[in-house]
């Protein structure tokens, strides 16, 4: 049931991403064709067809025809990867990567539909991805002197004075991600804060895709935490 939420939320994110992609011309094919593997060229040449297939697949997952679930998830997964290749991996890298991870887990789970252990493993995998995405980012910032003294954040926000307190709040919030596993209540509170964090990132940096993609993974982390505590 919870995986259904993840599948639908990630499909909403894919629909929005695809509609955005329709409004943007990709890198000229004449320039990127040369570095593209020959086997992929027939797929990548017709960019808008790719987008159309992706949109239809995402909508089909949303509508929820169970007999076509694996196919629609696979189509989303494959076109997500092809579109990333078409953009040379440069179109909003982080959110593209998480989109792919979530779709991959959902696809594998859909193949083994009816096997509860695989469904649970897929949820755990997505939950771990979400948790690690914050924790690894936090540790990486913690290791950077420029983040610790607030200069990096000030530079990102176009401020002349270092933002030490805000920097440490960000580092602390991200490094605290493993606390989610302590209890479902802590996890829910953390995820609510995380959602607000992404909305702020959108406000300051325009990173709108992260909001929807990470939100799609939240049910998985919450269910993972609930499952861990139900076993004790």
């Amino acid at each position: 049931m919870s995986l259904l939420w993840v599948e639908r939320l990630i499909s909403i994110a894919v629909v929005l991403q695809t509609l955005e992609s329709f409004a943007v011309a990709p890198w000229p094919w004449a320039i990127v064709e040369g570095e593209t593997a020959r086997s992929l060229r027939p797929f990548l040449k017709h960019y808008r067809v790719l987008l159309a297939i992706r949109l239809i697949a995402a909508l089909a997952t949303l509508v929820g025809a169970p007999e076509f679930l694996s196919l629609s998830l696979y189509a989303q997964l494959f076109t997500t990867w092809l579109i990333a290749v078409r953009w040379r991996g440069t179109f909003n890298g982080g959110s593209d990567c998480m989109t792919f991870q979530i779709l991959a887990a959902c696809f594998v789970a859909s193949i083994f539909n009816g096997h509860a252990q695989v469904q649970t493993a897929a949820l755990f995998y997505i939950g771990a991805q979400v948790l690690l995405s914050y924790f690894v980012a936090g540790v990486a910032k913690l290791r950077e002197p420029e983040w610790r003294n607030g200069h990096s954040l000030a530079q990102f926000l176009g401020r002349s004075r270092p933002l030490r307190l805000l920097s440490w709040l960000t580092i602390g919030f991200e490094c605290a991600a493993p606390l989610c596993l302590l209890s479902p209540a802590i996890c829910a509170a953390y995820l609510a804060t995380a959602l607000a964090f992404h909305v702020l990132n959108f406000y300051f940096f325009g990173l709108n895709r992260f909001v929807f993609v990470w939100a799609a993974g939240y049910p998985a982390l919450l269910i993972t935490t609930i499952a861990l505590h139900a076993r004790h």
Partner: peptide
Amino acid sequence: FSLIFNPTGNLAHARNNL
């Protein structure tokens, strides 16, 4: 509105990556 539809902003990110 650009929270749900932000093609230009995302193109800007793609260009920065380039």
